[in-house]
């Protein structure tokens, strides 16, 4: 009743949630044995920068556009093509429409 069946597999969210709940309670309890305090406002709450002085938040902030540098660099050639494709020119949008229309007409016309 609660199991989603696809014919090739199954997924029961309720069961998973229950397992999660039980383990959560267990480990929340275990975690409670650990020390919870620390010295607030001392040097230890500053960001660790290998001993360098902590810069202001604006300078320390890593911008969203620099995120996933590794991924975008290794896919650079793909991105240069895809970015050029989206020209922002209204005529090109219609050109794509006409092109797809023509290709599909060709395919179904041949068939």
């Amino acid at each position: 009743m609660f199991t989603l069946e696809s014919g090739s597999g199954f997924w029961n969210p309720i069961l998973w949630i229950l397992v999660l709940l039980i383990t959560f309670l267990l480990f929340y309890g275990i975690r409670g044995f650990g020390k919870s305090t620390y010295k607030k406002g001392t040097e230890q709450t500053k960001a660790f920068l290998s001993g360098n002085k902590e810069p202001s938040p604006e300078e320390m902030h890593i911008k969203a556009s620099n995120l996933y540098w590794g991924f975008t660099t290794s896919m650079k050639s793909l991105y240069s093509v895809l970015r050029k494709m989206h020209t922002g020119n209204t005529s090109d949008y219609i050109l794509w429409f006409v092109l797809v229309l023509a290709v599909l007409l060709l395919i179904l016309g041949v068939m």
């Binding site: 970015r83 989206h86 020209t87 922002g88 020119n89 209204t90 005529s91």
Partner: peptide, 10 residues
């Protein structure tokens, strides 16, 4: 000019 009206691109 439609080619210049494209601040929304990429």
């Amino acid at each position: 000019d439609v080619r210049k009206i494209r601040r929304l691109k990429e």
